[in-house]
Amino acid sequence: MTQASAPVLHLEQVYKSYGETAVLRGVDLKVFQGDAVFLIGPSGGGKSTLLRCINFLEYPDAGTITALGEKLCNQNRTHFEIASEKTLRHARARMPMVFQQFNLFSHQTVLENVIEGLITVKKIPKREAIILARTALDRVHMLQKQNHYPDQLSGGQKQRVAIARALAMDPPVILFDEPTSALDPELVSGVQTIIQDLSSQGLTLLVVTHDPAFVQSTAHTVCFCGDGYILESGTVNEIYGNPRTERVRKFIQSSGAHLT
C-alpha cells in the first residue's frame, strides 16, 4: 500500500527516443493524490509521448516510473527493466486514458463501450457491470444515449462517453490526452466542466492540453513541457503570472494567456 504522502505517480529521469529523435530527455514528475496536473507546452515538446509512456502505450527507453505503488519500469546504474505485461495491464486498468480522437469502439453501443473494460478486464458480471456503467454514464450526462452507436453522436458526446468508459473502471487516476482539441468550440466547455467535476470529486488527473482557459480553471499544478524536459512547474498563478524562465514567459505570452 502507498502511504498518503507518497506520490500516486512518480517519474524519475524518463527517456524516450524515436530513432534519432529524442522526445523525452530526462523527465521528473510527481503527481499526488487528488492533484490535477496539467501539462502544457509547444507541440512536439513531448507532452503526449510522456502521457503514453506513463500508460505504457509507448515503452520508455530509460528511467523509473512508479504508479499507484507499483514499479512499472526501473532504472539503476546499469540496467533498465520493464515490469511484466501483467503488471502493466493491471496498472493501465487503474489509470485509463482519454484520447483526443475519443477512440470509442465503433462496433459497440455506448453502453457496450462502457461495460467492455469492466467485463473483459475487471471480470465483473455483466449485470453488475451494466449498473456501474449506467452510473458512470449518468455522471457525464450520457445515460439517455446508452443504446446509440458512436457514429450517431456528436464529438462532445463521444468524448463524454470516452470519459465514462474510463470512469467506470473506478480508477484512482485518469490520463487525458488533449481531451478537447478535436471538439467544436461550442462543445468544449461541456467536456471541460465534466473534467473539472471529476477533479473536485477527488480524482487524480493528468491532463495534456493546449487550452489556457481550461488550465486556469481546473489545474492545481501546471507543468511546462518543452524540448523533452519539464522546464518549469508550479501553480497556475506561478506559471501564468510569474514564470521563472524566459522560455515559459514567451510561450505564455504567445498563447495570449498570461494573467494580468
Partner: peptide, 24 residues
C-alpha cells in the same frame, strides 16, 4: 486509436483481438 483505447483499459493482446479486432 481504438486498439490503443483497448490496451489502455488494461486488455491483453488476446482480449484486444477477441473483443475489438476480430469483430470489426
Amino acid at each position: 486509436g481504438q486498439k490503443a483505447a483497448a490496451i489502455s483499459l488494461g486488455m491483453s493482446p488476446f482480449q484486444v483481438y477477441r473483443r475489438l479486432i476480430v469483430p470489426q
